[in-house]
Lab assay of single mutants.
Amino acid sequence: RSRTAFTAQQLEALEKTFQKTHYPDVVMRERLAMCTNLPEARVQVWFKNRRAKFRK
């Protein structure tokens, strides 16, 4: 699988949600996936990586 390049709009939506909660539930992730045209699995991995970045 190749690396996913996120658009500015996708990142904005993801970051906005991350500010609200670092652990979105499956419903919220699926809604984000639909809004951003990304698979739910990519949204889940983005949050996992973003939490790791946040802890540093």
Rank of each mutant, 00 (worst) to 15 (best):
M34H: 07
L11C: 10
S2Q: 11
A33W: 04
L38C: 04
K53Q: 11
V43N: 05
L11T: 14
E40H: 08
P39M: 00
M34I: 12
A41I: 06
R50L: 06
A41F: 09
R29K: 04
F47K: 00
V26D: 08
D25M: 00
R1T: 14
A5M: 13
A13N: 00
T21A: 06
Q10I: 02
F18H: 07
T36K: 00
V27H: 08
T36Y: 13
K48V: 13
T17E: 08
T17S: 12
E12I: 02
Y23F: 07
N37L: 04
E40W: 05
R50M: 12
T4L: 12
M28C: 12
R31L: 08
F6E: 06
E30N: 05
R31P: 01
F6Q: 06
R29N: 02
T36H: 14
F18I: 02
P39Q: 02
F18K: 00
R31Y: 11
L32G: 04
Q44C: 14
T7L: 00
L32H: 01
A52L: 08
A41T: 11
H22E: 05
Q10C: 01
F18G: 01
V26A: 14
Y23C: 04
F18R: 01
A41R: 08
E40I: 09
Q9Y: 02
T4G: 07
E12Y: 05
L38V: 08
R29P: 06
W46H: 10
R1Q: 15
L32A: 01
T36F: 14
L11W: 05
F47N: 06
F18S: 02
A13H: 10
H22M: 15
M28Q: 13
Q9V: 09
L38S: 03
K48S: 07
A13F: 14
Q10E: 01
T36G: 00
R50Y: 02
N49E: 15
A41M: 08
Q9P: 07
K53C: 08
A52T: 15
A41Q: 11
E15W: 05
R29D: 02
H22R: 08
S2D: 15
M28W: 04
L38T: 05
T21V: 08
A5R: 11
E30S: 08
N49S: 11
K16R: 11
S2A: 11
M28I: 06
M34W: 07
V43S: 04
Q19G: 08
M34S: 12
L38Q: 04
A8W: 05
R42T: 15
D25V: 02
